[in-house]
Structures are given as C-alpha cells and as structure tokens.
Design a protein around this nucleic acid. Structure first.
Lengths: 202, 202
DNA sequence: CTTTGCATTAACCGAATGGTTAAACTGAAT
DNA sequence: ATTCAGTTTAACCATTCGGTTAATGCAAAG
C-alpha cells in the first residue's frame, strides 16, 4: 500500500489501518504484513508482539481523540463561540479518521485498563475539568442556562461522535450513499452547534 | 451460569452474553460452552457453526434495538410528548441491555451485509420514515422549529445511545463509579428530553 | 575485497480454535 | 427387558495464528 519509507513507519501505518477497522481480536498479523507489503517476521522484529504493536496504535488513536478535544477546549473564546468551534473542529477531525471512535470505544470496553496506561504517560484530561467548570460559571453568570456541565458535555460529544460510529446502520436504514453521508456530516457542523446553543441559551 | 432449562435456550443465552461482550472475532466457542455449562459439541449439534449461532444472536439484538424504537415512535401523542417518551423509553431499554449498542454497531461495521439480511425478514424500519414525516409536518405547523428531520432524529439517537457505548471512557475520564454512572443515566432521561425540546421549540 | 552488523526472508513450531466423530447415555415406546 | 431415537461427551482432526529461527542479503566500515 504505502510503499517506500522506512519499515517501522510502514508497519505502524498498516497496523493503524488493520487494527482500527478489524479490532484487536479480528486483526491478523499476516493482514498487517500484507498491508505493509513486508514479511510477517518484520512485525515481531520491530515490535515484539501483537499486543505491543496494538498498544502503540491504540495509544496514538486515543491520544488523537483526546488532544483534539483539549486543543479546542482551551481556546480563549466566549463559551457559545467555543462550543461552535468544538463541534466544527471535532466533526472535522472525525471526518478525517472516521474509524477512530468505534475502534477506541470497543477496545476500551474489552480492556478498560488501557485508559489507565494512557493517564500514566499523558495526563491530557484535566482540561476537561476546566471546561466543565467553565460551563458551570457561564450558568451562574446567566450566559447559558444553569444545567449539569457533565450532561451538556456528554450531549456535545454524543452528537459529534455517534454518527460516525453508526455510519453503517445509518446508511442501511436511510438508504443514503457515501456522498450523501459526507454531506449530512458537513451539514452537522452547523446543525449541531445551532441545536446545542438553542438548547442552552436562557 | 443459567442452570436448568432446555439446552437450546441455555446456548442462546450464553452466546448472547459472550458475543455481545467480546464480539464475533473475540468470542470463543469454548467460552460459550463454559458459560452455558455444557459440552462444546452441543453448540454445533444445535447450531452447526459459530457464524450461524452468531447470526441468530445478532439478529435478535438488532431486532430488540429496532423494535423498541418503532414501538414508541408509533404511539399516538403530540410530537413533544412523543419525543419525551422516546428518550425515556430508549434510555431505559439500553439500561437493561447496555452492551447492545456497541456490539451491534461494531459488528455492523465489519459486515454491513448483516443489515440486508435483517430487512429481508423483518422490514421494521418504515416507521422511521413515518416519524421523519411527522417531524417535518410539525415544523410546517409551527409546533417545532423547521429543521432537518433526519438531523433531529440523529441527535435524539446520539444522546440516548452514545453514553452507553462510551461508558468505560466516561468512567475513566470522570472517575465516576458504577452507581454514579447509573445515576447519571437515570438523570439523562429527563435532561436529554428537556435539552431536545428546548432546542426545537420555536 | 573482506568483514561486520543490521535488515529481511522462508521455513518452521506449538498452541489455540472451529469443527467432527464415534461411542456412551437416557428415557420413552414396544 | 429390549429397542430406538435423540442427546451428550471425550477424544480427535485440520487449520489458523502468533511467534521463532536459521539462513541470506546488503550496505557501510575497515
């Protein structure tokens, strides 16, 4: 697939693709080797075992999801504008990596410990606490309604992430094709933001 | 686990548990046999193959998800009340089967054909078209804002389903335990309904 | 040219896994 | 008591899969 470049990177790229689409249990080392266009033994030569390789891929995936969230959350903007940015930015990010959510959520259900390892090396979630506080404060100030910050954040996340996880179901039930799906997602960047702001504006 | 009863049912019960938590690729026939407390050969005696057994379990799971949706959607209520009912009812249903969403969404991504098989035997989705129409009409009448029915339905589904799929992530990031999670979910029955209605009321 | 150290490959290995089979068991009908 | 059909079990089989190894390739250093 992705020819040239040094072997290590080729492997990671292939592993990302295979693991994120088939999951840890469904992925075969041979699949990854084929995808990378190299010999299977190379996988072990560079990354010892399937689990080690998986952990690297998974950690990077989770990182990507968390970082994208953090970046936007820390922007210096009034809360409503910030929510608009978060939604737009997050949906865009998922558009570029549509398999990430289902992959991460699924593997996390089978091995919740994977989260702990992440926190030990990268404590990239305190920002979320800060965001929750911001929502609470905005509620007190009357900028938005007084509501549970956690519930609001859950709603924001839900509406951004779920459509990507439910893509096959959505396509099957509504009968839309790939183009229409992308259009629907594009439309959501504004729709969801409007929806949220309408819900929380006092 | 579930002792007594006829063997066929024991197997299905065990298969449900194993498949829905570990997925098709991650589940082992031996796991299912152990869970049912019977000999592995029985699985094949009654259900031929892993795939056949899986298909039965999956179809039933998808059915449950779809039916619950359809039932409430067809109730004879004003749209706002109906949305309240849908949210409450759906979240409650997922509370009783918290693994269903991630299971179905994940397997559906790997084999979207599974949906087609479902539609051939049980065309239980036209009701959704009816619901979308109802939203459009309510928009015209000024009962709610004029918005994309599909986007609204996606939002409703997202907010109901996502928290269950993201449970491990949520627990990890916020540090809440099982009891607090259940409380959060219980609270959501009202919060999400309020949220939606606030967003779509003209 | 030769050596040296890393990279690469094909062949191989043992364990796990889905599936099969032949024999043993069980209980009801004769 | 015997037969007979359906059920259950342990042992077994073939394949797949993660992982290893020994031999080969190869390019830079000497």
């Amino acid at each position: 697939m992705s020819q040239e470049r040094n072997t290590e990177e080729q492997i990671i790229a292939a592993a990302k693709k295979i693991f994120s689409t088939k999951g840890l249990a469904g992925a075969r080392m041979q699949d990854i080797a084929d995808e990378a266009g190299i010999n299977k033994a190379m996988l072990h030569y560079y990354y010892r075992s399937k689990e080690k390789l998986f952990e690297i891929v998974f950690t990077e995936a989770l990182d990507k999801l968390m970082d994208r969230m953090s970046n936007v959350i820390n922007a210096n903007l009034p809360l409503p504008d910030k929510i608009r940015e978060i939604v737009k930015n997050y949906i865009q990010g998922l558009t570029e990596n549509p398999h990430l959510p289902l992959f991460v959520l699924n593997e996390l259900q089978q091995q919740p410990e994977l989260l702990v390892k992440q926190f030990k090396t990268k404590p990239n979630f305190p920002n979320i606490q800060q965001f929750l506080m911001e929502i609470a404060v905005a509620g007190e100030k009357g900028i938005i309604k007084k509501i549970s910050p956690l519930q609001l954040m859950l709603n924001i996340l839900s509406m951004c992430v779920f459509p990507f996880a439910a893509k096959p179901l959505l396509k099957g039930v509504t009968g839309i094709d790939e183009v229409q799906f992308k259009l629907l997602i594009e439309e959501r960047k504004q729709f969801v933001a409007d929806f949220i702001l309408a819900a929380i504006t006092p």
